[in-house]
Design a protein around this nucleic acid. Structure first.
Lengths: 193, 193
DNA sequence: GTCTTGATGTTTACGTTGCTCACATGAGTG
DNA sequence: CACTCATGTGAGCAACGTAAACATCAAGAC
């Protein structure tokens, strides 16, 4: 495939830049606007026609990340219907973080510009997904609160795994740890009731 | 207080640099090695006598952060003894993140160099603290797993609050949300038993 | 068809950054 | 006193984010 271009204008530089940045990110390279431009074979200032600044590009990447994560979590739009499936939901969440660490960090590990509508919407969609799932599973519970708790637990597990605070392990071991954390906290309730 | 210096040598530049960097961080300014040096009123290359590179300074800041957090959590070394106190533990954790967001992000939001012993030790001490607390409260449970779960929940709540995923609110509202998340997940267990 | 215009890409340039290397200083040790 | 080594300085390099002025070209107006 030739990414070279024979016309003065690129055609779809915006997505080309996002793709390039994403590739670099996933390859573990530190990504810079200039490097992204180089990879897309345009001048170093061309990106500024499509992104106000570095942060705008990062937001675009984050939006992609939120969509990808959402797709991972609910491939065909169907939500978890049982508690077990909910836990697998969380496992998928953590796996996403470990499979695409740089992207995950970019999505969450930075101060985000709340002014970016697309980004806020994409992030909100995620939370909505969890809330919807919980509505299905626990129709009586306070979904909002529960959704936050479940999301937070998954999120924390993801980050702590990412940071290597838990001894990094195989995919299966990670999944097991997520399940154990869930059941552990749940068991607290069972024990004290 | 005069930060100026009348001798060629500084005296304790290392801590002066850490202090300067921390001040800038907490003030919300983007911090650079050069700016830190400027603030400490030394040449821009002086920091390299004390820190191999930028990451080394950041690790030193992180270590400070871990210690401060630990001090917040267990001021006089005493651990939470009841479940309620454990939850206040988590509240304190989240509050720390919100009170010192830049530092918290630096501690967790970046790829860390595991080679930095001091940093690894300081982070490990935190996990140990949680594990010890749980040993006291739930002598029969699997502390390791539970500690991970509790820490992850607190950590996730902290980060999601930081990222504004939950509508930012007053200190008290934050505390209430943390409690609610805890009880919510715990109630899951009570309900299904 | 030609003209104009606005979106998109290029060139050049400025200030900042992380970092290296050669050199200066001076406190502590023999 | 002289030495030395940890610590501070200065100049300099390559890369970065970003701005301003200019080039190209597709699309609509005449």
């Amino acid at each position: 495939m030739s990414t070279a271009r024979d016309t003065y204008h690129h055609g779809d530089l915006r997505t080309a830049l996002i793709d390039a940045a994403l590739e670099m990110l996933e390859a573990g390279e530190a990504f810079s606007l200039r490097a992204v431009a180089r990879r897309a074979e345009v001048s170093q200032t061309a990106p500024y026609r499509h992104f106000a600044d570095r942060e705008a590009l990062e937001s675009a990447l984050a939006v992609r990340g939120f969509r990808d994560l959402r797709h991972d979590l609910a491939p065909s739009g169907d939500l978890p219907a049982t508690e077990d499936e909910l836990i697998e939901f969380a496992v998928t969440y953590v796996r996403f973080a470990l499979r695409r660490p740089a992207l995950f960090r970019l999505m969450f590990g930075q101060e985000c510009d709340d002014s970016n509508d697309e980004r806020v919407v994409a992030a909100g969609a995620l939370q909505g997904l969890v809330a919807d799932a919980l509505t299905q599973i626990y129709p009586d519970a306070d979904h909002q609160t529960l959704a936050q708790g479940v999301w937070a637990l998954a999120h924390g597990l993801a980050f702590l795994h990412l940071d290597g605070k838990f001894s990094a392990a195989t995919d299966d071991e990670v999944a097991e740890r997520v399940r154990a954390a869930f059941f552990g906290i749940r068991a607290l309730g069972a024990a004290t009731t």
